[in-house]
């Protein structure tokens, strides 16, 4: 299991390879990549700055991954989230889950993203031609996370 919070970009291909390398029990690898869009809430986004709570960020993602491991067959998992200044088309987040079968890989990957969106302490600030603004949390994200409640 690997959790990284970093300013640098990451190599999706290398991370996907890494979770399955040399382990013949892995039959499925699911991945999700989140990117910076150039439009949000009808405003052009020039740059985005991601702030976080160092320490709690890593801790909360590790707890989310641990919960996924209790609910699904997760052989390995990597979560990388970038912070600092990003521009449209930049990668923000990567989740990679290796499992025995695709069902577990898909579900665990989606669960980790849904929980990360509502529990990991990151905040986005957008710079637009009209000025800077903090991104508001979406009710849809809470709904997405709530559907995993047992």
């Amino acid at each position: 299991m690997k959790v990284l919070v970093q300013r640098e970009d990451f190599d999706c291909g290398a991370e996907i390879e890494a979770v399955a390398r040399g382990n013949a029990k892995v039959g499925a690898v699911a991945s999700f990549v989140g990117l910076v869009r150039d439009i949000n809430e009808d405003a052009a986004v020039r740059t985005m700055t991601l702030e976080h709570y160092p320490g709690m960020t890593e801790r909360s993602i590790a707890q989310i991954v641990e919960e996924a491991r209790m609910r699904w067959n997760v052989i390995d998992c990597t979560v990388i989230h970038r912070v600092g200044e990003l521009i449209p088309t930049d990668r923000i987040v990567l989740v990679v889950v290796a499992s025995g079968h695709r069902g577990d890989a898909f579900e665990a990957c989606e669960f980790i993203m849904d929980y990360l969106k509502t529990r990991a302490p990151f905040w986005k600030k957008e710079q637009t031609p009209e000025g800077t603004r903090w991104v508001e949390a979406r009710a849809g994200d809470d709904k997405a996370a709530a559907r995993w409640k047992k």
Binding site: L50, Y53, H81, M113, K117, R119, A120, K124, E136
Partner: peptide, 9 residues
């Protein structure tokens, strides 16, 4: 810590 609802991902 006090903070607004999170918006990462």
């Amino acid at each position: 810590a006090f903070f607004p609802p999170v918006t990462g991902g």
